[in-house]
Design a protein around this nucleic acid. Structure first.
Lengths: 228, 228
DNA sequence: GCACTTACGAGAGCAGTGCTCACATTACAG
DNA sequence: CTGTAATGTGAGCACTGCTCTCGTAAGTGC
């Protein structure tokens, strides 16, 4: 395997993925057609199977790349802020998420939308999927270290404490129950709002969804980061 | 059109829908196959087109029915509570939503998941889609009438106020900006949490997602309904 | 009760899909 | 320079949504 073939292979692979993304964007993931990709590339459809074992595998690769893309985006947005500007970091992170989602709606749907039936996310997707989550977790940890406390707290039941204990163990970050709850709430609201906007559940109501999104995330930030 | 044919038609129609739901549940909406339905019914595939103009139209009908189903569910949950027990109503509404979503995951995906590509939701779906939304809106209105104020408020910008003005006009309910923001935040968090749970983004973390969900909605209720 | 219309189902057919396989070609390695 | 492994081909299988023609059966007006 000298350079020539390897290079050609890489080029063909990326070209396939590029055309696949194009198709997904214009006609949706469900209508992704390998034959059409082949047609556009002026090649026999069977040739594509030298590069991807199946349609599903192609989709998986695209999903992993999307996870990495969004992860990098969020990491960069966070890194651009001064470490102790927690509110600013939260704003940057949430804004970058929404921006990415709007710029790549089909990729967002691929990740956060209805799972493809019978499609079991391979373990390869787990690590990339955690990248953006880790950014928020570190933000929460830093907030806690800085003495932030969520504004609203509710009495936690035994069951919840047990669950959050498990979360703590999984994450190796020792957040308080209140912080975990606040973080998960903000997380859910964030993706709920983005999904609503993207999947067309609010488009008849808002003309400027970004304004609302800013107000929403500001509120979430206030709740989550509380008084320092 | 005397009874006999009309009755037969109704029966066939419901049977088609039943089998379609079965298929969607087992293999996903994208893999819904009219031919397979026909096969299971022991009938020619073309016969189905006497009942539904296309696969998309069948999907639309199913979506509308799901909207009505979830709407009725939420309405009943709300109606079962004493009118002035606002916290209880919020709990009932959010719980019933999650329960419905978990009981009918494929229907939830149909409504709140990635839209089927190229599928433009017909106007017929708008009215049923508003049923469950109205329940929350009336809850918010009652809360405001009872003197509730959201706990956390953020300074609203001009842009947001303008947007919320439009919301108010559309809804014919005069909620304050703070109430609208709190309501939308709770709404987003609710569906974000349910989507995460259903679409498998948290199943590695929680063993008892309901406990967390309860804590989450309690917190949202506290924020939204505040001090009476 | 009879003729007419309408609803319904059958089955062939079109264009598309994912995927497989035997076969040729071509680039690389020893 | 020869053997091997990677690559592309094109036919083919089984499937899909959907259309069209055609025969039959059910309901309707007189």
């Amino acid at each position: 395997m000298t350079g020539i073939r390897a290079k050609a292979r890489l080029e063909t692979t990326t070209e396939i993925k590029r055309l696949a993304r194009e198709q997904i964007a214009s006609k949706g993931a469900a209508n992704l057609s390998l034959r059409e990709i082949a047609r556009e590339m002026g090649v026999a459809s069977s040739a594509l199977y030298r590069y991807f074992a199946s349609r599903d595998q192609l989709l998986t690769v695209l999903i992993i790349e999307s996870y990495d893309d969004i992860g990098g985006m969020v990491e960069r947005a966070d890194a651009n802020c001064s470490r102790d500007d927690l509110v600013g970091r939260w704003r940057a992170v949430s804004q970058s998420l929404r921006t990415w989602a709007i710029t790549n709606p089909s990729d967002y749907g691929l990740i956060f939308g209805t799972p493809v039936p019978g499609y079991e996310a391979p373990t390869d997707t787990i690590a990339p999927a955690l990248r953006y989550t880790n950014v928020l977790l570190h933000l929460l940890a830093d907030a806690q270290a800085a003495g932030c406390k969520p504004l609203i707290t509710v009495p936690t039941t035994k069951g919840v404490s047990r669950e959050y204990k498990r979360v703590r163990a999984n994450l190796e970050i020792k957040l308080t129950d209140e912080m975990i709850l606040a973080g998960l709430a903000a997380w859910a609201a964030l993706f709920g709002a983005i999904s609503f906007e993207l999947f067309g559940h609010v488009d008849t109501v808002f003309t400027d969804p970004e304004a609302h999104f800013r107000a929403l995330t500001d509120m979430l930030g206030t709740q989550m980061l509380g008084m320092k």
